[in-house]
Nucleic acid binder design. Structure first.
Lengths: 367, 367
DNA sequence: AATTGGTTCTGAACCGTTACGGTCCTTTCA
DNA sequence: TGAAAGGACCGTAACGGTTCAGAACCAATT
């Protein structure tokens, strides 16, 4: 109130030091190393700071000098808001947030609009590292992240060999689920899966597209299915596989409808996520098909809503996955070569899978 | 490969400029203003950058110079991970993320451990503004945010007069809900509410504590109830109000149990959130009480799970709230005086509220 | 009296970039 | 042919801190 009638420019550490007649170092120490100056001086610094409206050291300037941003970036393939719609993504976020919290680090959600090729948001993100969660292999944002000179953990992605990775054995887990259905006697099945690439392709999927899928997770789940059923003598190229771009129950329902329209004889509907499976069950009910008496339905993820209806599925530890990703990233130990972590999954046999009507034996010889 | 055998220090814009024999400005322009230099030179700059492993301008240095962080900070009262458990919070996050996405801005989740008084995370956050979501009035993190010289929007908080605010009319909405119950004939009711302050107090709430509640939202909802029931001739100080620190269905159930143990005669159980209400319904069922025949149960928020069971509640536009907060913060117009936005709510009369057993008339004269 | 040790404070270098206000050279047009 | 316009590039000065090696001072020890 005394010195300057009008604060033309906001106070800085330097101006505060000048006002006090001490060095900038001392002011800095007042905030960061209280033991480096006398209590009286420190108090004087802080008092003057308050009087001048100095809000404390600027975070960005500090980050520049210390080379630490105090935050990790999260890159998602979807619109930022998608993450808050998908139960599995939410679980992942929660785990990651937990790890960040433990480390006192912020979590920066990087806007990565999949529509646009604009990767500026990745370049502008002031972070100490990145977590990349389930983006297509050819996503330009992923490429941009990999060019940044900060540690990175990819999640639900192929092992790049150059950065840490955490995920599950999608292929193995789905293989196991398929074995379960096969042992029940299912041979004529249909599949509803999530998007396989960046382009929208709501419809049947060719074997080519299955192999070339840009989403690691979906590619491997389909591959696990194909392997198991092929071994069981099923010609996988004849199995109806339907893809949906949007991931919600409505997609699950319409996908199931498309499969059932193509082949009403199928005895099991395999979905690559629980959300899709829940939609599929709605569609089955709409058609008067009883689950599992008339048709079996399976999912993947192990979300709460699925649990409540006794969905047969693969439970994956989504929260742990997020936490593991964060731990890996924030682990300050000397980085040797990139680590790769696979978390355990669990086959959950619920009330939505059973032997096909007519019994397993009856179908044992037919295709 | 030619010039330097070993890259001792990572390339910077300056070193790149030196290598090329051009000014730093030119290199900067190559990235930020392509029109400011010839295409050939720009290509040469970018090629050399690639060769030297220069990853492009450092985001933090850029932020320092431009005075823009490209991110907004979100402060939550709870552990970061809490936000991903509560449906209303998730909706808010989604809306906020949407607004950020539109603006191409990042969203930084600031770790604010409510246990510790450590506000360093607020000081360290490199952001262009803050959104504060439902923290107690006396939260030190909130105070720290308000000291930062950046625009701030508070949400579900009292109007501070100094910063923008968005919220709903909690008191009015709850008053209306109370009127609904009163008109049905309910006079003997119980309440289960969320935490009222930073300290854990799982149990009955004195009128004093109700008035002094540090959570604006809870304080106003209770106040709306008290007003309506007092007007209807009910002595509010005698109404059992139970508080729960944790916000989940288990709390709702145990809270309901505590209320019912105290007064088994109540005809309606009013919960200040849907999550609590769902728990309360579980507890009612456990006791063999049919809803709404034996007891009415109401919530607040309008979450999906409540909708599915036909919960009588107040629907509030959580997503819109988040979006509005983001819009307010990112609105670059000249800031005049702080704005205050109230979003509309809607009383949703579902299947969990009905006239008390014995009819309204019978009770019309008694307390 | 000289040395030692500890505390408190300082000076200067550095972090990597962009804003600002030029200069210089070439082209265009009356 | 000279003036004006425009394109391409540059130099300097911040941006707001942190860090580290000392300097200055004082008390205690040798």
């Amino acid at each position: 109130m005394a010195r300057s009638m009008h604060v033309r420019r906001p106070a800085t550490l330097a101006s505060l030091a000048a006002e006090l007649g001490v060095s900038r170092t001392t002011v800095s120490n007042a905030y960061n190393r209280p033991d480096q100056l006398s209590p009286e001086l420190r108090r004087r610094v802080l008092d003057t700071a308050r009087r001048l409206g100095y809000p404390g050291p600027d975070p960005v300037a500090r980050s520049l000098r210390t080379r630490k941003a105090g935050a990790v970036g999260l890159l998602l393939t979807e619109n930022l808001s998608y993450a808050f719609r998908d139960p599995a993504a939410i679980g992942f976020l929660e785990g990651l947030a937990l790890a960040c919290e433990d480390a006192g680090t912020g979590l920066l959600l990087v806007p990565a609009n999949p529509e646009r090729e604009d990767v500026a948001s990745v370049h502008r993100a002031g972070v100490d590292g990145f977590v990349v969660y389930s983006v297509p292999d050819d996503d330009p944002h992923l490429a941009a992240v990999l060019e940044r000179p900060v540690p990175t953990v990819v999640c639900d992605q192929p092992d790049l060999g150059t950065v840490d990775r955490v995920g599950i054995d999608d292929r193995g887990a789905m293989y196991e689920l398929a074995r379960h259905l096969i042992s029940l006697g299912h041979r004529r099945v249909g599949v509803v899966c999530m998007r396989l690439a960046r382009d929208r392709n709501d419809g049947f999927v060719t074997p080519d597209r299955q192999h070339a899928a840009h989403f690691h997770v979906q590619r491997n789940r389909l591959s696990g299915l194909a392997e198991a059923f092929s071994e069981a003598g099923v010609d996988w190229s004849q199995v109806p596989v339907v893809e949906r771009f949007d991931h919600n129950t409505a997609s699950g329902a319409s996908g199931a409808a498309q499969v059932l329209d193509r082949d009403p004889q199928i005895t099991a509907l395999i979905c690559t996520s629980d959300v899709l499976a829940l939609g599929a069950m709605t569609e089955a009910a709409r058609r008067g098909l009883r689950v599992p008496h008339d048709i079996s339905v399976t999912g993947f993820d192990g979300i709460r809503a699925g649990e409540e209806v006794g969905l047969t599925t693969v439970r994956q530890p989504v929260l742990e996955k997020g936490r593991a990703a964060g731990k890996l990233l924030l682990d300050t130990n000397e980085r040797t070569r990139p680590r790769s972590v696979n978390l355990a999954t669990e086959l959950l046999i619920g009330k939505t899978s059973a032997a096909p009507r007519g019994g397993a034996e009856e179908r044992w010889f037919g295709p």
